[in-house]
Nucleic acid binder design. Sequence first.
DNA 1: AGAGATTCATAACGCAGGTTATAGACCCCT
DNA 2: AGGGGTCTATAACCTGCGTTATGAATCTCT
Lengths: 247, 247
Amino acid sequence: MTLLDSIVMQGLGKHGALTAEDKALILGLELTPRRVSAGEVLWQESAEVDMFCVVKEGWAYSYRNLGNGSMQILKVYLPGDIIGMRDFGFSRRLAGVAMINEGVVCPFSHQQLFELFVRSPALAAGIIATAVRQQAMLTERLVYLGRYAAHERLAHFLYELYLRLQRIGAVDENGFSMPLSQEQIGDALGLSAVHVSRTFSMLRDEGLVTRDRQHVVLPDPEALARLVEFNNTYIEETLPPAFQSFH
Amino acid sequence: MTLLDSIVMQGLGKHGALTAEDKALILGLELTPRRVSAGEVLWQESAEVDMFCVVKEGWAYSYRNLGNGSMQILKVYLPGDIIGMRDFGFSRRLAGVAMINEGVVCPFSHQQLFELFVRSPALAAGIIATAVRQQAMLTERLVYLGRYAAHERLAHFLYELYLRLQRIGAVDENGFSMPLSQEQIGDALGLSAVHVSRTFSMLRDEGLVTRDRQHVVLPDPEALARLVEFNNTYIEETLPPAFQSFH
DNA sequence: AGAGATTCATAACGCAGGTTATAGACCCCT
DNA sequence: AGGGGTCTATAACCTGCGTTATGAATCTCT
């Protein structure tokens, strides 16, 4: 899963907006792969912002540890995602990032990113659009935390993962591997681990989700999508026409 | 309240990163002021993205109307804020925006923004940093929705408004005007209007907040800040050093 | 000034989801 | 293979917040 294969860049490429130099620049972000172990912390909250990362293999999550002892997981990152763009424009990290399972990440520097911005407005627009899309997913979760019940939050969470995994070819017969524990899912959805378990049982009884350890199957993804009225504007693949002016 | 006075731009200006042309470009975003009435909808969710806005006077909010009949307010915009950057990179609006009270906004086009990006990398970086800062505030609210109780959410909300208003000179003796109804506050914090009322009473009884209609006073802002362990990284005024490479 | 619409405070009641506890299943280590 | 740790399921109990209701205060419109 290279960045060049990611949705936005594919979109730019399709419109002929990417030159050979652009492609070289973006591949340049992935020259230093690093193997990382399960649970490894890539950086802590408040650490200095010294790099960003492309996830090549494995899952990661960004999180905040709170004063009351609990944790809020902000976002789950899958292969092909860029980690850390949230902190662009800040001198310190707003959130920690840790690996869920083992994997491979490609760190790149602030400097490389600036370089890329200056040398290719098309890539800059693409990377910004990607970052904005990630923020849109966060916003969607904010809506769910504010106004939906536990079963809707979980259904939405699983369906979003399903869509994102599908796009990187990690879904097989409506099933996928899900390395998050119920505790971690709870930390993402603002629920207790116990209630996540209850809610899984409920969705199972309704035939919407089956699960065996780390393997999740959505027997009827469309039914799940109807339940959560999934808004897929924010996962849409096309960039607005104005972006094509960047030749 | 002009954009040039906004925190990030002030930061850039202080470092001498802004040329005269830069300043002209950014003032160019505010050439078409438009008076808007209380409750006026600037755009609806799913509308085509045709413009962005600088708020000159009055408060606005972005929101999502949900299938279950409720509303989630995503963000409150104060004078000096840019509205709509959330939708940059999308062809359709992810959220509606409406005025809370009457005011003045300055719309500018997608085209103007691109123009500015191409002609001034320094301004581009500044505007992106501003947008990222707004997203950071959203993230902070997500954390509060996920993991904090009603009184902490409300205290945090009020304290954030207090800080933001202070920076634009709209706080007088720890008091400020707050045109949001309790229903709207509830829609922002994921609470019912009734519970917002209860929670206000609670904070009042503890001497943390007094309120008379639209006028809110925080008798002891520091006590409030302690209660919510306010994380002001995301409101920090300085840009990281790397941004100064944009001369 | 009077009528209707908003907004707000407070009370009564119910339930979704937090908390604590227990036990079984699976994992990793030596 | 056995022992400790983690993860999950389910139950029992409790509470924070939603819901509905009512009355008072304030705003808006004519």
